[in-house]
Design a protein around this nucleic acid. Structure first.
Length: 586
RNA sequence: GCCCUCAUCGUCUAGAGGCCUAGGACACGGGCUUUUCACGCCUGUAACUGGGGUUCGAAUCCCCAUGAGGGCACCA
């Protein structure tokens, strides 16, 4: 778990209880005509409405995905931008897949992003009432009420039977809909059964705040399971009960939930509750239009490994396993049976020096993206403030955000633009802020720069601020300040193993050896000579660059040498001298 | 297969019937600056999916086609 500079701890305000719950009225059997919502567009909201309350309700089955982060951001912006409240609720009704680690990770990622919540779990503490798994009796109470009014019935099919019924329907090319009065329902059995909710037999329509009017025909409804055989409510039921009890005014969620909304509205109606407003936002995909999934990371690692083994036959499964320090068997399964495995993925990527695509928030964090840059970028997918604005502070985001600004078309996650934006944030940041970001970055990564003292970090930051896209880039490129780097043979050939190379190298060594004192004034004359050395201005300086940095690219030499110090500089020059002399005989 | 949704440069988008010869940003190309790499500055290429309507006039409204995405779980 990472350490997090903790924002203000969220309040754990009590749930709306008895009096509010007493407002709950279960519908009698005589139903009034179905009219879920007037088709005319409702007024979106008055400005600064204290009654606006949104929620982000992730299921703790993995780390926080950028898509989830965007949903959280939009909900947060909408609530806070209008003086409302933002609720965080953990939907852990899937006993098999939910883990406490995931929940903690999601909390930590949201905190890192600065998306704080008014009500919800308290980091570092036990599950409270914002974890659905603690609320079983509440759901059961409402299920009982719904049963009394005749909306609920038992269904005894096993999962296997249901699967068979579905494939049967598929073979007959007809849609499968589970309905109470359909023929061939399983008789009462001895195993625990599920409880289903009988959907109305009428068209359901509603007005989506982003998409406009949506209708779903009566024949499309399916009697949804509301309680699983393990006694836990399904998502559909728990979400409705909690959104009501927690007085959520606006449900802002991804468009993949659009078809769930009629089910939820039917539940609201059966429970006698007023549903919240709904707004479904467009989805975000990879540039190639595939879904952004953590599997992309495995795919990238697998692809790179297979390419390597194809191009270099000497690399076998065993050698690669040894390189990555994983079991050959596990690697085999990963490679050949396409068994995704995050441990193997990471190990392979590390062994091959492969940068995995960032998918989860923590990936971006570890790559050295600034949280505000990530937030800014994410906000701009599917939403635009108008006026050609792009770089927006958190404050401006809050100020400008509106549901009307959300578009209807799916977006793509353009990593190049994110990289640009992150660089933009880095260049605009103060040195002090950058140092803080670097510290947070160091806490979750392990680069040599971790060992830099504040003074050195400051100097490095100054040097790299204008030439990095991410903190990770700087951490990588600044390695040579901490230990002698490997020499890039291509750079050595190009700049040093040339006719004038050895002689220039000698001159550089004696110039710098004589430089005194080792400060800007003392070195500058030597630097000037080095730059003007040779035919083309600056060409000889590359020799020096290769010597100290190992390659053809580095921050400006003067500052570099100053930070490196005389001894390191001369050592590395002599190392290069030896390298060139040693091989020239062959 | 059935249902739902969407459709402007490669990408994110501006655009609410005449302000559109379609604007901005990223990316890409060219140039300047430069001891490398960046940064910065200047500059270029590039889009209204197609077809029918409505209208004096359509990127904007309607219909159809096509394409794309989502959903069809005892997952959420």
């Amino acid at each position: 778990m990472w350490k997090v500079a903790a924002p203000a701890p969220p309040n754990s305000a009590p749930l709306p209880s008895p009096q509010l719950r007493s407002r709950l009225r279960v519908q009698s059997s005589a139903m009034p005509p179905l009219k879920y919502r007037e088709m005319a567009a409702p007024t979106l909201f008055p400005l600064r409405n204290p009654m606006i309350r949104t929620r982000f309700a992730p299921s703790p089955t993995g780390f926080l995905h950028v898509g989830g982060a965007r949903t959280a951001l939009f909900n947060w912006l909408f609530a806070r931008g209008h003086g409302g409240e933002f609720v965080l609720r953990i939907e852990d009704t899937d006993q098999v897949r939910s883990t406490a680690e995931s929940a903690a990770g999601i909390l930590s990622d949201l905190q890192w992003l600065g998306l704080d919540w008014d009500r919800g779990p308290v980091p570092g503490q036990e599950k409270n009432e914002y974890f659905q798994s603690t609320r079983l009796d509440i759901y059961n109470g409402f299920i009982d009420a719904l049963a009394k009014s005749g909306h609920v019935y038992e269904a005894w099919e096993t999962p296997a039977q249901l699967a068979a019924m579905r494939s049967q329907a598929e073979r007959e090319k007809r849609p499968f809909r589970y309905r109470r009065q359909m023929p061939g329902r399983a008789p009462k059995g001895s195993t625990p059964c599920v409880l289903r909710f009988e959907m109305p037999h009428e068209e359901i329509s509603f007005h989506d705040l982003i998409l406009g009017p949506i209708q779903v025909g009566a024949e499309e409804h399916d009697d949804i399971v509301i309680r699983k055989s393990d006694g836990f409510p399904t998502y559909h039921f728990a979400v409705v009960v909690d959104d009501h009890l927690m007085e959520i005014s606006h449900v802002l969620r991804a468009q993949e939930h659009l078809m769930n909304t009629p089910k939820h509205l039917a539940l609201y109606r059966a429970l006698g509750w007023k549903p919240p407003e709904h707004a479904h936002m467009p989805l975000v995909f990879n540039m190639d239009n595939t879904k952004m999934s953590k599997r992309d990371k495995s795919k990238a690692a697998r692809h790179a490994a297979q390419l390597l083994m194809k191009n270099k036959p000497e690399v076998t499964l065993e050698t690669l396993a040894a390189m990555a320090k994983v079991e050959p068997e596990a690697l085999g399964k990963f490679l050949h049976q396409k068994q995704d495995n995050s441990a193997v993925t990471t190990a392979v990527a590390q062994a091959l020096h492969l940068a995995l695509p960032e998918i989860e928030v923590q990936d971006f964090r570890r790559s050295g993206y600034l949280h505000d840059a990530l937030l800014n970028f994410i906000a701009l997918i599917g939403w635009a403030p108008g006026e050609n604005r792009e770089i927006l502070t958190r404050h401006e985001l809050l100020d400008l955000f509106s549901l009307e600004g959300i578009g209807k078309t799916n977006g793509r996650f353009d990593r190049k633009k994110l990289l640009w934006m992150n660089g933009e944030y880095i260049r605009r940041a103060s040195l002090k802020d950058l140092a803080q970001h670097m510290q947070a970055f160091n806490a979750v990564t392990d680069y040599p720069i971790k060992s830099a003292d504040p003074a050195m970090l400051d100097k490095l930051l100054t040097m790299y601020q204008e030439r990095m896209g991410t903190l990770g880039e700087m951490a990588e490129n600044s390695r040579f300040f901490f230990s002698a780097p490997p020499l890039d043979p291509k750079a050595v050939d190009k700049f040093v193993r040339i006719a004038s190379g050895p002689q220039h190298l000698q001159e550089i060594i004696s110039l710098l050896a004589a430089a005194n004192p080792w400060n800007a004034e003392g070195i500058s004359p030597a630097m000037e000579s080095i730059i003007t050395m040779g035919e083309k201005r600056g060409s000889a300086a590359q020799i020096l660059r290769v010597a100290v940095s190992g390659g053809a690219v580095s921050p400006p030499l003067l500052e570099t040498l100053l930070l490196l110090g005389r001894d390191q500089t001369l050592d590395r020059l002599k190392r290069l001298e030896k390298e060139v002399a040693g091989v020239s005989g062959s």
